[in-house]
Design a protein around this nucleic acid. Structure first.
Length: 271
DNA sequence: CAGCGCCCCTGCCCGC
DNA sequence: TGCGGGCAGGGGCGCT
């Protein structure tokens, strides 16, 4: 589920509620996520002030005086603010109870999410150290992408989803950005022209920014920090539309797996 | 070392 | 209605 826009929507939804708060209590009902949650986490966080909430790629980073908490939503996770106590549901695995009485509640049916504590330099943490540039910053530009594409012969679609190249572009937005840029998802990376790299960078930025503005894409589980779904799904051009007509040329869109992930494209509009 | 599969796990949808 | 198979928004890891 959550790609960069959904994680950013979550961050923005939560941030106002946790400002100047500290952690009163941590309730872990299910520690077996992608990795087991550090058993000492409740003790480590108790009475610690939440200094900041940032995002790197699809990782949320909670800053505390004594370290950082990396929080990844996986495929099906959501993190939301409850204004008051509420009985936990089946997949509500973790609560951070705040000093203002509000609760940060993590729900994750598939448990691909992760809650990882570190007291080292957070950006040097092994989960973050090798991440590529943020797509919505100037560091991600046509020059950068063009340079990286040379000599890489794999298909552009799985390549652009590699977080070492650029973070935050998951399956939905990779499909969308390639369609919007008119680039065939199977095209060999090194065959992209400079012009196509410009278009791709531009379309990645545009689709991600638009999705953030709509509160993300909700297909099933996703809710933002305020508990509301995102509204970008209705604006998707290709994702989930295999077999339906291309919105641009009306030809039926093709859908086939590529590297274990559904890939949807138009053979007329994408070259 | 680039690049490819394999998983982790639950829920849902489809077809029989 | 029940059940098995396939599929799902991520991504680290272990192989080649």
């Amino acid at each position: 589920m959550p790609e960069l826009p959904e994680v950013e929507t979550t961050r923005r939804g939560i941030a106002p509620h946790i400002a100047k708060q500290h952690v009163a209590k941590v309730d872990i009902r299910q520690a077996q996520l992608r990795w087991p949650i550090e058993p000492t986490l409740p003790r480590l966080l108790k009475n610690q002030a939440i200094l900041n909430l940032e995002r790197r790629g699809k990782y949320l980073i909670f800053q505390f005086p004594n370290g950082h908490l990396l929080w990844h939503l996986g495929m099906s996770g959501s993190l939301r603010v409850l204004l008051q106590s509420q009985a936990p549901g089946k997949h509500d695995h973790v609560d951070l109870v705040l000093s203002n009485g509000k609760i940060l509640r993590f729900n994750d049916p598939r448990r691909f999410g992760a809650v990882v504590w570190t007291d080292e330099d957070v950006l040097q943490h092994k989960l973050l150290a090798h991440l590529g540039p943020e797509p919505l910053t100037e560091a991600f530009n046509a020059e950068y992408l063009f340079g990286k594409t040379r000599k890489r012969q794999m298909a552009i679609k799985p390549w652009i989803m590699d977080s070492k190249i650029v973070v935050g572009v998951g399956n939905i937005y990779a499909n969308e950005a390639l369609f919007n840029a008119g680039i065939h998802p199977l095209k060999a990376t090194y065959k992209l022209t400079r012009k196509q790299c410009e278009r791709l960078v531009e379309e990645i930025k545009t689709v991600l920014a638009n999705a953030i503005q709509r509160g993300g894409t909700t297909l099933r589980d996703f809710v933002g920090g305020d508990g509301k779904p995102g509204y970008f799904a209705q604006e998707l051009n290709v994702y989930g539309r295999g077999g339906q007509p291309c919105k641009r040329c009306n030809k039926l869109l093709l859908e086939k797996p590529l590297g274990q992930r559904a890939t949807v494209y138009c053979t007329v509009c994408q070259k």
